[in-house]
Write a protein that binds this DNA or RNA. Structure first.
Lengths: 144, 144
DNA sequence: CGATTGTACTTAGCCAAAGTAATAAGCTAA
DNA sequence: TTAGCTTATTACTTTGGCTAAGTACAATCG
């Protein structure tokens, strides 16, 4: 395995504290009041995967199964997600988005523009470029 | 203000979900069992600033003053922080680290190496370079 | 000088989100 | 067929923020 430089150590330490602060702010300044960031994230995952069982979703989101059960129940209550019996295994459940969820996601994407624009004001073009590069790395880090 | 590209929008959206996932993992996989990431972050801030009042710390960490009061109380209870009266203004309090905190931080830094090394295995040199660049941008984003 | 207004921290109580433990139902393989 | 594993769920707890209200002190205005 590769050795870490002093700079790497400092960077990860900085990323760590920045991530904690950002996560707090994202919780408060969420664009859609009715959906927590995690619920939003689950809808995003479903957008990529099409459909999945609660267990799969829990693993992907790095959340315990009971939490995912709760999140799915919430989303189902809001009509954003459908729970269907698994064709082969009657223990399992298949979760998929409803058309209402797709409409909601589209609208939320629009509303997010205002917030993103405001956020982007504080960054230079160069910084935004760095962020574009960093997004997939953070994504990878989150799944490691 | 500058307009955002489609890529920028996608990047910020990805950063958002990655940050939420990472923050959850950081909460669980913390190196020191007895200290929450926020408490750790406060000690780090104190390491940079030397000493500060609870209000200053709350602003730096983007937390409400009552939360900081509780965090400082917790740290004081563990003997990691000292609360002294402000020399000029008897309303204020000056918080500073104890030598025990410095020892703790040093030990934690050592222990973090194992976790960092494991984490680094999954990243390429290029990705680590991106992370080094991204750290200050995330920091800036968290304070915007 | 005294009253009013403002500031800094604290206390008390609430809430959201995630975790653990225990349960129920269903699959699988000896 | 039964013993043991897996999946989802339910019930309860923990954590870590928040707001509102309270206390003590400072500063300012009449």
């Amino acid at each position: 395995m590769s050795e870490l430089s002093e700079d790497d150590r400092a960077a990860v330490s900085d990323v760590r504290s920045a991530v904690m602060r950002l996560s707090r702010r994202l919780r408060n300044q969420r664009v859609d009041e009715s959906l927590s960031p995690t619920e939003m994230s689950v809808l995003g995952t479903l957008a990529r995967c099409g459909s999945a069982t609660p267990g799969e979703l829990a693993r992907k989101e790095h959340v315990q199964p009971p939490s995912m059960t709760r999140i799915v129940a919430m989303l189902e209550g809001k009509g954003l997600v459908r729970r269907e019996p698994h064709p082969d295994d009657r223990r399992q459940v298949v979760v998929s988005r409803t058309s209402q969820a797709e409409a909601m996601l589209a609208e939320s994407r629009d509303r997010r523009n205002a917030w993103l624009a405001e956020l982007a004001e504080g960054l230079t073009d160069e910084e935004r470029a760095i962020l574009r590069q960093a997004a997939p790395v953070l994504e990878k880090l989150a799944h490691l």
